[in-house]
């Protein structure tokens, strides 16, 4: 299971990175989301996969999964939502203002 998860995470990271490197601003935002999935899965996997019950205390259950990565991921999901929304609006405004979604056109002006 760990191996399969690792491969899945690798695919998510590779696809996310490739999108992130794109010149198209929409693809950059999409890539960011894929990277977020990969990161969250990675955090979860590093906490150990599928051992014990969900960390909600129940009488008689002794072994639980590690709640710490879950708390981290929960935070990460919500923050990433905020960031994605911000990026989206930024990209949207960029397209509106410059009539271009090509990041290569957005370079600064040389100082000379």
């Amino acid at each position: 299971m760990e191996l399969l998860t690792a491969i899945g995470i690798g695919v998510l990271f590779a696809a996310g990175t490739y999108l992130l490197l794109s010149r198209n601003v929409v693809r950059v935002v999409l890539g960011n989301s894929l990277l977020a999935y990969g990161t969250n899965l990675m955090l979860l996997a590093s906490g150990g996969l599928g051992r014990g019950a969900a960390p909600v205390l129940v009488e008689g259950v002794e072994v639980y999964t590690d709640p710490v990565p879950q708390a981290l991921i929960l935070t990460a999901i919500v923050i990433n939502f905020g960031v994605t929304a911000f990026l989206l609006v930024l990209a949207y405004r960029m397209v509106q203002e410059h009539r271009s979604e090509d990041l290569a056109h957005l370079r600064g002006v040389d100082d000379e």
Partner: peptide
Amino acid sequence: GKAREPGRPGAGERGAMPIRLR
């Protein structure tokens, strides 16, 4: 914000902000 799609008067016809290219 979406409601102001390009193509509507005031939005679409507006010239792009000048970008100086390398």
